[in-house]
Design a protein around this nucleic acid. Structure first.
Lengths: 249, 249
DNA sequence: GTGTGGATACTTGTATACTAGTCTTTTCGT
DNA sequence: ACGAAAAGACTAGTATACAAGTATCCACAC
């Protein structure tokens, strides 16, 4: 995106400071309001979720040091954070690697997300107010605009906001972090296995949930959200067997 | 519990290497199979969950260094891990502190746990086999023995095993970590607000769940588990208002 | 008495050197 | 030619020194 041209390989790069593919073209935002650790963490996290850093790719602490021109301490901290988040696996004295995306783990993560979001929706339906309807309608309108503009990235971002906002209406703020944790690996998968043609369906399904809520039909809302979220299972199970072997799952 | 007598303050302790209360009497298991980071992490984690380290208590990196006679690097790593787990809050240039137990957060955490365990139980009920029954019966027997021996700590440990095993039967192994995360803060609370007289009830409630499963009555099993888990809400809401203010919540 | 400034003693954040383990590659003996 | 051992180039783990921000306390001016 920024430094597009790979520097020519003089055979000396390794001695001077070789940066593996996937790590190059990564930059730290210079906002020094945050600590170096925070910025490295964010940069790597985005790269992993965007699949710029492929599952299984090695992340040597020293490589990251060289890339960002910082010492190992903050890099190490950042990588440890990523390890806690399940985005990186570190094996002592061997190396750190971007966590693979196991299909079964994706199933279970999405099960967690689905279960929790449905439970929160039930709570929300019980306390639904017209003001909530307006809030969600505004989000739907934004999604519709982005759909017309064919801005898939922004749409996916708004999808995230939609689910977070809907969950937040339940007055159980403390539940969202658990959902987000479960959602992260699925976001990685989405970047990997993009399905552009589904965006319109997604918007329609979102609308059905809100429609049902505004009608006061709790059961229909739950069914609509369940159907929406279950599409992920359909997609996961639709991956051909031979492709599964090729994938870094 | 162990070193009850605080050493007299000679005014020199601070210069030599003062170790704050709660941190003294903590030792590292000498099993060098694990890294120093792992051992420090485990020691602090246990201390926090057992409420040896009270909510809000300061955890200075240097204090821990002195206590365990190790350098700051592994201590720092351990504390960062705890911060990721939500057991410690670190504010830069100010200090690190044992995370407080907010009542609302406890509510939400337990909501997550309850929701997920119930969802898994439904899955388990659908694939129930006699072998599973034997497994769970064995655990119930162990609980009964510990109840007779009045070994509360061991009983609570077995309670944990019971729920983990039951959840594991669902063939969704990946869900348990999410439950455990949510369960952790509640475990801290249990240590703080011990209710010895409930142990017998707990065993009875566990039995009801297994009984229903063995009868093949899925709905009854869910209801029994829900009732069991909802007792936590009853306990939480039963805390007198004036006590809430005194507690470090 | 009161408020302000600064010295001081903390805290965590960062940089760097060194340790120890793993994997590859090379070299030497058979 | 082939196999085993050793040398080297990696890796993450640990120890230590220093930088930079924060809170406290005390002296001092008003």
């Amino acid at each position: 995106m920024s430094d597009k041209s790979h520097p020519p390989d003089h055979g000396l790069d390794r001695a001077v400071g070789f940066v593996p593919p996937g790590l190059d073209s990564l930059v730290l935002d210079s906002n020094s309001q945050f600590s170096v650790t925070d910025r490295v963490h964010r940069a790597l996290r985005c790269a992993i979720i965007d699949v710029q850093l492929a599952p299984g790719a090695p992340i040597s602490e020293n490589s990251v040091c060289r890339q960002f021109s910082v010492s190992r301490s903050p890099v190490r901290s950042a990588i440890q954070r990523l390890a806690e988040e399940g985005l990186v696996e570190v094996s002592p004295q061997r190396g750190s690697f971007v966590a693979p995306l196991h299909l079964e783990q994706l199933h279970d993560s999405h099960f967690v997300r689905r279960t929790l979001e449905l439970a929160l929706l039930r709570e929300t339906a019980a306390i639904w107010t017209p003001a909530m309807g307006e809030t969600m309608r505004a989000l739907l309108a934004k999604q519709e605009r982005l759909l017309l503009e064919r801005d898939a990235d922004a749409f996916l971002e708004e999808d995230h906001v939609f689910h977070r906002t809907l969950a937040g209406l339940s007055q159980r703020e403390g539940v969202w972090p658990a959902i987000e944790t479960a959602k992260t690996s699925m976001t990685r998968f989405h970047r990997y296995w993009a399905q552009m043609d589904r965006l319109a369906d997604v918007l329609a399904e979102h609308s059905m949930v809100i429609d049902a809520l505004e009608r006061g039909d709790s059961a229909a809302a739950e069914a609509a959200l369940a159907a929406h979220l279950d599409m992920v299972f359909v997609i996961l199970d639709g991956i051909p067997k031979e492709q599964r072997r090729l994938m870094p799952f």
